[in-house]
Design a binder for these strands. Structure first.
Length: 592
DNA sequence: GCCGTTTTCGGCCCGACTGTTTTCAGTCG
């Protein structure tokens, strides 16, 4: 059983316990365990097989360890099966509907026998739901709307698409002049690969300006639906489906609010726990001394009660709990708070560290521009070198190159290179890994390449064991330097191929093959958590755009962002090296 | 259910908004 399945099963147990009204802290313990499991890069069933104690992990105690062991050994969990006899699995989907939580789901089940979303829809249409205590006509309508959305299941938005919506909105809000500052927080600021909703944060000097700003927000032409509108918090949906939330706060809360709304939720929880240990209460309003004695009456309701010790900027909030400021990209509760406490936060890679781009295409295969145009564009970006990696012949529809055309292309490369000494053009190819793991080009030519990229473009739905075997075979080929877009995923279009990522990464380490981080925002492959595993294994990473035209060379920043999320430093990335060191690192030192 | 340089028991993060409530529970992030 893989970690994702372990996490899913325990998450279902947590959901069902919640519907049963179990102890909330017990439920939280399950959810904490799920998070821990999800962030592990090695399969926990391997730990079980190796007798490595699972209780070493944060949030895994005796009980969770035995649950995990049971799942690894039997493929199921008795506790889950027991719960499933009492609680229909469909009720978990019901609980996911907006406005419906565990309590209401339980009520729907007990009073109306509703166990699935379909049954709920029927009952709501028959106006039976509004008759229950705690429900009304409005909540009934909201449920029906929620079911419709659930069916269309509004997906997360790619980061580059979110960029296109957010920049004009920011300008619009800033132009009004009511706000001192308007910033984007949330997963967008942390640069997660996709964004579920956009969290905007505005600072105003007085409540009147806040009211005007909120109205301005609700009036934005893209707004299709207002979901919530209070004095300090509004929530809307754009026609495109993108959900946008706006929070309005006073200046003294700026830093605390930015921390709070940037998240991640797990990072914040960890931060507030640290606050509690230091006798502090951290909220979006600031950092306050907690009085110790029980506040009563009005004081208990005032979020700004107690002595304010910080919150005007982010550094103050972190300083209050004895930490240096932490970069947004790292705020995922993946050890950044511990590292910050020890002053061991990494110096992350930046765009300026890169000296080359190692995957791009020209009109020789499916690119849109000539070799020379790509060269000029790369030189303009200040690169010292780049690799031209047109497709090999197996990708016939892209005009992939066979041995004969490779030789012809080399002639053109030599001519172009002779005219442009300002940048080094590396001879390369994105060679297809065929279904049996062999490579789509003769060894004689592979040996003469400066860099050999390999990747899978066909038979992507092979069974996991065959897919793994196929990639392992290719990696064992002595001429292979880089495994490009290793999982083959395309966000919103195609899931990652099913194979043993960990085994492939270990093989990369063994054979000295680098893994690519494909910077195209549709791919971002490898993803951050896998890159963290690569870093642990000491596997070098290359970050490349896979550009098919000069403009796409600019997508590199999306790759850098994900690399930063994976804690990569310049030393972890091969294309930060000067040309000679780069060629030596991939085992192709230049003569002389 | 997990956890502990104050604790092996008694804690466990914080606040806003909505709908259905006459004072608040449930949900959400």
């Amino acid at each position: 059983m893989d970690n994702a399945s372990l996490a899913r099963t325990l998450s279902e147990v947590a959901d069902m316990l919640e519907i049963e009204g179990a102890n909330p802290f017990r439920i939280r313990a399950y959810r904490n365990a799920v998070r821990t499991i999800e962030t592990q890069t090695t399969p926990l069933c391997k730990w079980v097989a190796d007798d490595k104690p699972l209780t070493d992990l944060q949030g895994i105690g005796k009980e969770m360890a035995s649950h995990i062991a049971e799942m690894c050994e039997t493929g199921q969990l008795t506790q889950r099966e027991d719960l499933a006899e009492r609680i229909p699995a469909g009720l978990i989907d019901v609980m996911r509907l907006p406005g419906v939580g565990p309590k209401k789901a339980a009520k729907l089940f007990e009073e109306l026998g509703i166990g699935t979303v379909d049954e709920l829809e029927e009952a709501a249409q028959a106006e039976k739901v509004r008759e229950l205590a705690g429900f009304g006509a409005k909540s009934e309508a909201k449920i029906l709307q929620g079911i419709e959305d659930f069916r269309h299941h509004t997906a997360r938005v790619r980061l580059d698409h979110a960029d296109r919506h957010i920049q004009p909105l920011l300008e619009y809000l800033r132009d009004g002049g009511e706000a001192k500052t308007v910033e984007v927080a949330g997963s967008y600021r942390r640069r997660r690969e996709t964004v579920g909703d956009v969290d905007l944060l505005a600072i105003v000097e007085n409540p009147e300006a806040g009211t005007t700003l909120m109205q301005r927000f609700l009036d934005y032409p893209q707004v299709a639906e207002v979901q919530m509108a209070g004095d300090t918090r509004g929530s809307v949906r754009f026609g495109s489906g993108l959900q946008v939330d706006l929070r309005i706060l006073p200046p003294e809360s700026y830093g605390a609010a930015l921390v709070y709304f940037t998240g991640s939720k797990e990072h914040n929880v960890r931060l507030r726990q640290r606050g509690v240990e230091a006798g502090l209460r951290i909220s979006e309003y600031g950092v306050f001394k907690s009085d110790g004695e029980e506040a009563d009456g009005d004081e208990a309701d005032d979020p700004t009660a107690g002595e304010r010790v910080g919150g005007a900027d982010e550094a103050e909030v972190y300083a209050a709990v004895g930490l240096p400021w932490i970069l947004p990209e790292l705020r995922e509760d993946r050890g950044e708070i511990t590292a910050a406490a020890k002053d061991e936060l990494p110096e992350l890679i930046t765009l300026d560290d890169l000296r080359g781009d190692l995957q791009m295409h020209s009109t020789w295969s499916d690119g849109k521009t000539s070799i020379e145009e790509m060269l000029v564009a790369c030189a303009e970006r200040g690169y010292e070198y780049f690799a031209l990696t047109d497709h090999s012949k197996a990708l016939a529809m892209t005009g992939g190159l066979d041995a004969e055309r490779v030789r012809q292309q080399w002639e053109e490369i030599d001519e172009v290179q002779a005219r442009h000494p300002e940048i080094r053009l590396l001879k390369s190819l994105e060679v297809d890994i065929l279904a049996d793991g062999s490579l789509d080009l003769e060894d004689e030519l592979l040996e003469k390449m400066d860099v050999v990229l390999v990747s899978v473009h066909s038979r992507m739905s092979l069974p996991a064991d065959q897919q793994t075997e196929r990639i392992l075979t290719a990696l064992a080929h002595p001429e292979v330097d880089i495994l490009a877009h290793p999982t083959g995923r395309r966000l919103g279009h195609r899931k990652a191929m099913d194979f043993d990522v960990d085994a492939v990464l270990e093989a990369c380490a063994e054979h000295g093959v680098a893994v690519e981080l494909n910077a195209n925002p549709e791919r971002l492959d490898l993803k951050d958590s896998h890159l963290m595993r690569a870093r642990e294994l000491g596997i070098p990473v290359v970050i490349s755009t896979d550009a098919h035209n000069p403009r796409s060379l600019g997508l590199m920043r999306y790759g850098i962002e994900q690399a930063r999320r994976a804690w990569l430093r310049p030393a972890d990335v091969l294309n930060t090296l000067p040309l000679d060191e780069f060629l030596t690192a991939i085992g192709h030192p230049e003569a002389g």
